[in-house]
C-alpha cells in the first residue's frame, strides 16, 4: 500500500490539537515551541524548542507529540531539539494569549507585569512573587476583586 506523505500544513493542524500538558487550554502551537515541520525523505522531522531549560513538561510534550503523530499514521518520525533562537513569549499566538486570559492566567506583557486582572479587568494589581506553580508563571493579586492569579512571565 502506498501511503501519501501528509502535507506539512496538515501536520501543523494536528499539532495544533495537542494541548500543553500544564496549561491545557492552549496548544503546543499556541505556545510557540514548535519551530519547524518538514519532511526529510520519508521521515517527518518536528523541531521543538524548550520553554525553560529545566521545565519538567518538556519530556511529556515530546511524548505527546509522538503519540499524536503516530495516531495519525506517521511511522517515521524524528523530534529535533533546538535551543537557539531561545524561546520567547513573543511566540505565543494571539489566540493563545486570549485563551490564557479567559482561563484566568494573565498573558505576558513587555512591561513585565499583567495589563489587568484576568477576572475583573482592574488595572490595580500587585506582584506576590516572581515565581509560581510552573517555571513559566509568576503570582500576582488583584487589589480590587482581591483574587490572586497567575501571570505568564514575559521572557
Amino acid at each position: 500500500m502506498v501511503v501519501e506523505k501528509p502535507l506539512t500544513e496538515t501536520v501543523w493542524a494536528w499539532l495544533d490539537a495537542v494541548p500543553d500538558p500544564e496549561i491545557p487550554v492552549i496548544s503546543l502551537v499556541d505556545l510557540g515551541i514548535i519551530r519547524d515541520v518538514s519532511w526529510q525523505d520519508d521521515t517527518l522531522e518536528v523541531t521543538v524548542t524548550p520553554t525553560y531549560s529545566g521545565c519538567p513538561a518538556t519530556r511529556i510534550i515530546n511524548l505527546d507529540i509522538e503519540t499524536a503523530l503516530r495516531d495519525q499514521g506517521i511511522e517515521k518520525l524524528r523530534l529535533k531539539t533546538q535551543l537557539s533562537p531561545a524561546w520567547t513569549t513573543d511566540w505565543l499566538t494571539a489566540r493563545g494569549r486570549e485563551r490564557l486570559e479567559s482561563y484566568g492566567i494573565a498573558p505576558p506583557q513587555p512591561a513585565g507585569g499583567p495589563a489587568h486582572c484576568p477576572q475583573c479587568k482592574s488595572g490595580n494589581v500587585e506582584r506576590i512573587s516572581q515565581y509560581g506553580s510552573t517555571p513559566c508563571k509568576a503570582q500576582w493579586r488583584c487589589c480590587d476583586c482581591l483574587e490572586p492569579f497567575d501571570y505568564f512571565k514575559c521572557i
Binding site: P50, Y52, S53, G54, C55, P56, L83, I128, S129, Q130, Y131, G132, S133, P135, Q139
Partner: peptide, 19 residues
C-alpha cells in the same frame, strides 16, 4: 512564595546542568 522561587531557581540550574 520564597520556597517556590527557590525551587524554580534550582530547577532552571539543573536544566542548564543537563545541557
Amino acid at each position: 512564595e520564597e520556597d517556590i522561587a527557590l525551587a524554580n531557581t534550582a530547577l532552571d540550574l539543573i536544566g542548564q546542568t543537563t545541557l
